[in-house]
């Protein structure tokens, strides 16, 4: 009846226990994620901050980001690179996931998944350098082709190009795409595939009408997992692109650290975030459509 009593009762409820359990994580996330994010949003709305942000409120930073040719070009390049990487990665990952799920015996699956994760044993930076060794100006491909007399001068199309960046990123993110697709394929009841054939469809059409739609949640998860980190990738353009073909993260770095223009850097960061969020929401909605009817 009294206050102490009702508080005691609250402490015993499921909700209270839940809050207690999530509060350390929530606190951690707030301090390390939400707070800096808030600071970035605040910075992005400030007037001229070449000498550190000064007080005053403006949308000019955003207007410049959205209308400036250089920003548009870099944003577009980031989008094209990450979308190409996503497309290639998912297209290449699907057959691998399909093979492991359908072509590998149950006892061997764990081994295959283990093998797929082996590239993670070395740091991403080292893997990028390895690609540089292969694709670079004096790299394996160029020197090999030159020693065979096929070319006289090193090819420049394979190094410092968008193509080589896509190749590097697609390789790096392959396991991230394989695993969710594999999981969604594993979940498909095999009798559904027999039913498809029993009802008169060939193996290929059964795949097209049954397997593929049922594995779409995994495909969409793979798309998100590859697309979101690659659009903001910093290391690959820096090393593979040699800093000559910057993506959005490199631009943010230049503004924030080299030019000390926190306001513009923040405005670019927020803009990139909004675009990623919009694309992600689009895919999540798509996923909802495919997840419908698969609550089992």
């Amino acid at each position: 009846m009294d206050k102490g009593n009702s508080r005691g009762r609250f402490r015993d409820t499921e909700a209270a226990k839940g809050l207690m359990l999530v509060s350390p994580t929530a606190l951690y996330a707030t301090l390390l994620l939400a707070a800096p994010l808030f600071a970035v949003v605040v910075y992005s709305l400030m007037i001229d901050s070449k000498t550190g942000a000064s007080a005053g409120f403006t949308f000019n930073n955003y207007i410049e980001v959205w209308t400036g040719k250089i920003y548009q070009a870099i944003m577009l390049r980031s989008l094209i690179v990450s979308m190409t990487v996503t497309l290639i990665t998912v297209l290449l990952a699907y057959p691998v996931a399909y093979f492991v799920s359908f072509g590998v015996s149950q006892q061997r699956k764990a081994l295959w998944l283990f093998l797929i994760t082996i590239p993670f044993w070395t740091s991403y930076l080292i893997r990028v350098f390895m690609w540089k060794v292969i694709l670079g100006y004096n790299g394996v491909i160029n020197s090999g082709l030159m020693s065979l007399g096929i070319i006289d001068e090193p090819l420049t199309v394979i190094n410092y190009s968008v193509g080589s960046m896509v190749a590097t990123l697609a390789h790096a993110y392959a396991p991230f795409a394989i695993l969710p697709i594999f999981v969604s394929l594993e979940k498909i009841d095999r009798s559904l595939l027999e039913a498809g054939q029993d009802l008169g469809e060939s193996k290929f059409l059964t795949f097209w009408r049954v397997t593929l739609p049922l594995s779409m949640p995994g495909v969409i998860a793979a798309v998100l997992i590859v697309f979101i980190p690659t659009i903001g990738d910093y290391v690959t353009p820096e090393l593979i692109g040699g800093g000559k073909i910057p993506m959005i993260a490199n631009m943010i770095e230049v503004k924030m650290l080299k030019q000390n223009d926190k306001a513009m850097g923040s405005a670019i960061a927020v803009t990139a975030m909004v675009i990623v969020a919009a694309v992600s929401v689009l895919f999540l909605l798509l996923n909802k459509r495919f997840l419908k009817g698969q609550s089992k």
Partner: peptide, 14 residues
């Protein structure tokens, strides 16, 4: 021939 499966094998996405 057509079959009624033990698990019925109803396509969940349709």
């Amino acid at each position: 021939t057509n079959m009624v499966f033990q698990s019925y094998a109803i396509f969940p996405h349709l």
